[in-house]
């Protein structure tokens, strides 16, 4: 019993009719309460997006940008490497060339797009080599051409050399090649042709006996095929010069300077200046030798 409560009066009071607030009053109150509750909840979700929105956006931007930059870099590097079977060492040599040591066994070099000189000398070289080459042995010689040359040796065949040789070889399988040559050529063709990008993966060293030298990447094949198509129409020089530009990126400074020196000896001062300009752009801190200053 509640203190001071008159139970008799309470019973009578409870029998009284129960007035109720109108429905509209109920609706107004409940609507207001829900509106306020909605406003209370929203900041919780908005607060999350407000707090984390900017950092997440920045992180996503950085991630996407770096991923795209990395992809572009790898694509460029991959497309520059014509031949895919480059051991990791071959790639690092692009940055810091290491002279082959005398005590090391001379292993067949990986087939890479070798540094080449600008277009005109290449065209000349192409013509002179074409003249020297005999038609029958082209496939075999082409297959072993890369294997004979170390990656960055001065006498290494230029990419355009390989290119031109393959251009000449290409018709050979179609027209019944000699047996030995065709076998070697088949071996070459059956050699795994990994993706150009895989050139950056760790690969087993190439055994001298097998030397699957010119197993080109699909991209490189396409380039060569288009080069052979364009051959004779005069567009080959443009193509080779484009290749030269891309290869110039791969050249070591020493090799580049050597090419420039050759140009200087040939008396092509305009090209020498242009090459020197590019060289300085690419290696601004490189100290030029006396004869090229």
């Amino acid at each position: 019993m509640i203190e001071g409560r008159d139970e008799e009066l309470s019973k009578i009071y409870r029998d009284a009719e129960e007035p109720r607030p109108p429905q509209r009053v109920d609706d107004n109150i409940l609507a207001a309460s829900q509106r306020v509750a909605g406003n209370l909840r929203r900041p919780a979700t908005f607060g999350f997006s407000r707090r984390w929105g900017t950092p997440v956006a920045v992180a996503a931007t950085v991630l996407v940008t770096s991923t795209v930059a990395l992809m572009v870099y790898e694509l460029q590097s991959g497309s520059d490497a014509v031949a895919p079977q480059v051991p990791r060492g071959g790639r690092t040599a692009k940055v810091s060339p290491v002279e082959p040591r005398a005590d090391q066994p001379r292993t067949p070099p990986p087939v890479v797009l070798q540094p080449i000189a600008p277009a005109p000398p290449i065209s000349q070289a192409l013509q002179s080599e074409r003249a020297e080459q005999r038609p029958g042995e082209s496939a075999a010689s082409t297959a072993s051409a890369g294997a004979r040359q170390p990656a960055f040796a001065p006498e290494a065949p230029r990419a355009s050399d390989v290119l031109s040789k393959r251009e000449e070889v290409k018709p050979a399988p179609a027209t019944a090649p000699p047996a030995a040559a065709s076998e070697r050529a088949r071996a070459t063709q059956q050699a795994p042709a990994p993706d150009a990008l895989r050139a950056f993966d760790v690969q087993p060293p190439i055994r001298p006996a097998q030397a699957p030298a010119a197993a080109p990447a699909p991209g490189a094949n396409t380039l060569r095929e288009s080069a052979s198509t364009l051959q004779g129409s005069g567009a080959v020089s443009a193509l080779t010069s484009r290749v030269a530009v891309s290869e110039a990126k791969e050249r070591t400074p020493e090799k580049w300077l050597e090419d420039i020196r050759k140009l200087k000896i040939e008396g092509k001062t305009g090209e020498v200046e242009r090459e020197l300009g590019e060289f300085k752009k690419r290696y601004p801190d490189y100290r030029l030798p006396e004869d090229l200053r």
Partner: peptide, 21 residues
């Protein structure tokens, strides 16, 4: 309800609506 639970207010309202009115 202070933390945003509208349902809590509805319960509270239903309990005290008639006596208060």
């Amino acid at each position: 309800y202070g933390r945003g639970d509208a349902r809590a207010f509805e319960l509270l309202y239903s309990r005290h609506r008639l006596p208060l009115y």
